[in-house]
Every structure is written in C-alpha cells, then in structure tokens.
Computed example of a mutant assay.
Amino acid sequence: MRSRLAIGSLALALGAAAGCSSDTEDPIPRTTQPTDLPSQPTPSQTEDGGGNGGGNAAPKAGGTIADLLEVPWGVGFLPDGDAVVTERISGRVLRVTADGTLTRLGALSGAVPEGEAGLLGVAVSPDFDSDRTLYFYLTTDSDNRVVSAELDGDALGEPTLVLDGIPRGFIHDGGRLAFGPDGYLYVTTGETGNPDLAQDPASLAGKILRITADGEPAPGNPDPGSPVWSLGHRNVQGLAWDDEGRLWASEFGDSSWDELNLIEKGGNYGWPRFEGRSGGEDFVDPQLVWPVEEASPSGLAWADGHLWMAGLRGQRLWRIDVSASGKASNPTAFFTEDYGRLRTVAAAPDGTIWVTTSNRDGRGEPTPTDDRIIVIQP
C-alpha cells in the first residue's frame, strides 16, 4: 500500500492560471487568459456517418441493456462477458449481463458523492480468473484513492487500500482506471480545480499514474520512486490503448478546447500553461481538440479499429480514425442529442460498445428511464 508520494525529478515549469471545467455547474473564473495560443487543429464537424469516417458504415444503436441507474460511471468486463458497473452517487457496484440482468454485488460506503466526486472508475484484474480482484477509484472525505476488493460469487469483499493521498475536490477528480497491455494499472487524476497542482512535482493531482497491483510505482516509470507516468493534465476522463499498444487519453478543457492526447512516458501536457496546443518543445500537443460545447469528453474506448469518445456537454459519440503511425484524424459524431449526456464508453468482449448516460448527475435532463446503458454495434 502507498500513501501520497513525492514526484521527485519530474519538476517542470509551473503555470499561473486558475481554471474551470467545461462540464462544471459553478465555473471558477479564470484569472489569466493565454494570449499566445496558436491556431488549433479542430476536427471536422461531420455528423452521423456523413462521409468523414474513411468510408466506414455508421454505427447502429442496439437498444438499452439497463435503465433506471444512478449515474453509472465505471464499466469493466469480466472474463465471462458480464460487466461490473459503478454508480457514482449511490456507491453501488453492479453486475450487468448482456441480456440486461442486474445483480447488486455490494457498495463502497466510504465514497463521498459531492460535485463530480464519488465512486468513479473500476478495473478488472488481468488475472481475475485466479485472484477474483476488482479495483475501484473513489473519493472519501479526505482524499481520492484506489482500493481493491475480491469478488466471491455475487458478493464483494471488504476493500483493501492500494493507493491513497490523491488530492480530492468538488470538481476535477479524474477517476478512470485501466490495466494496460503491460499489466500495470493506470490511474487518471484531476487537478481538483487548483490548476497549479497539475505541474506540481509534489502532488499526485493532474496526472496519469502507473502503478503495480499493490500500489507501488511500476517498473520503468520516469522517476523510479514515483507513480507518475505523465503530468500537466486538467482532468483526464478516458483511457484506451490501440492495437499497437499506444495509450490515448481524453481530457476536459477549460473555456475553449477539449483534448484527445497520445500519452508519452514522462510527457507534460501543458495545463495550466496552455489549453489546447502550446507549440512549445517542452510540452506535448493534443492530437485533436474540440470546442468545449461539442465534447466535454469523458469515456474513451478502442473498438473496430477506431477510438470512440463520449461527450457529456456535447451529447454525442465521436468515432476517430487512427493511422498506423499513430495519427488521430477524421472525428465523426453520432447519436447527437439522442441520449443526452454520454459518460463512459467500453468495448465489450462480443465486439459491441457499451455507452452509459449521465443525465441524473444534476446537469442533464433525465428521461423517466435514465440513467441507461446503451449497446452500440460499431
């Protein structure tokens, strides 16, 4: 188990801006506005398969798998094809089958659902068949943390601390968990509405972390004593690896540009010095950006040879081409305003995509059946 860790040799230039989330109800005024932003690589606005997807057929909605959920946030698939789903506000952990059967596995009573916080991401151990272990990201009354728990049949065991001391906030708590192809656990954290933490070498906030299953810094990290894999993030909400093993992340911008980033070991992604492209050698520029009203990107998945990115404020699902050399292009929007706010995208073992709505989070307009899990045929 690990407590809050110093980040050592990853110190880079600090910014001097305050920020607000494009998906935050009560924005925090920005104290400084960058004046040196270059033109941004904005995506095409092609909607609903209108020819911008490289000749690919449009995805089809396959119906609702589950409804009447309370802000489903994390989705992780078990080896048998069932999904483990977390609810941010209730703290419940559910098993959901492909035919829509719901089973309550338990609840994490320590989760504190304030603002954007609560019970967030879930990841299934790569060795689940033998260790039966699930990993969760949750906000407590003192911090954000990662815990693990064994699943015994349909009963979730007592949680065990994996990593604590991640700063918490009313907004920008990160929360996505995913095991990479290397077998290590990747954790996204937000800067809690305090932008300077993203560049702070002594803080775990505003980072992507890479740890072992026991919470130790993973071998090969930029600083061997630190869990930090990359820094300078505002609020990463989605992680996905493509077929070449490249890591992609979707990230909330402030008032102008949301981002899709290709994550590099030790990379600095610029916040709060820059929103969108920096054009500077010390920072990694996003591959694509969106005006905040079209995205507020959350979940990200790799399926059918594309990245799929959910939009909260944008209320749409983006399909993004990725070239063999790792260049993202041709974003195409689907299902715009059909289902409201879209939170999580997960690639199911059967080749479909599961998308969760987030209309009961206080910022949407829920229907009588929200929140839902929608199945998409890519």
Rank of each mutant, 00 (worst) to 15 (best):
C20I: 01
G121R: 00
Y186R: 08
R95C: 15
P29D: 07
R234I: 06
K327S: 15
E293N: 08
Y184T: 15
D223Y: 00
G253L: 00
E337R: 15
A58Y: 10
F128A: 11
L78N: 10
T31R: 13
N52L: 12
F77G: 13
D129H: 05
G118Q: 04
P59F: 03
S3A: 09
P126V: 01
G174M: 07
D371S: 04
A17R: 13
A333V: 04
D350E: 06
G121T: 02
L161R: 12
G225H: 09
D214C: 07
K207G: 08
E259A: 10
A249S: 14
R372E: 07
E87G: 14
D304W: 03
L247K: 10
W271I: 04
G190E: 03
P195E: 04
G174L: 07
P291E: 05
I376M: 11
R2Q: 10
K265F: 04
D26V: 14
T46Q: 08
G63A: 02
E293P: 03
V84N: 12
P113C: 10
G190S: 07
W241N: 00
D371M: 02
R104Q: 11
G63Q: 00
L138W: 14
S278H: 03
A107C: 04
G215T: 00
R2M: 06
S278D: 11
R88A: 12
T101K: 15
T160R: 12
S230Q: 10
G225N: 15
S226K: 00
L317V: 12
A18I: 06
L231T: 05
T97V: 03
M309I: 06
A295G: 08
G81H: 08
P59W: 03
D214F: 09
V187S: 07
W354C: 10
P195S: 07
N221H: 05
G267D: 14
D223I: 02
E114H: 13
Q237D: 08
M309C: 08
G232L: 06
E158S: 15
F334T: 02
I166M: 13
D223K: 01
F77K: 09
R145M: 05
A16Y: 04
A240M: 15
V292K: 04
R341Y: 09
D242L: 06
T42H: 11
P297R: 07
D321G: 13
W257M: 10
T357F: 06
T160A: 09
G74A: 10
R273A: 11
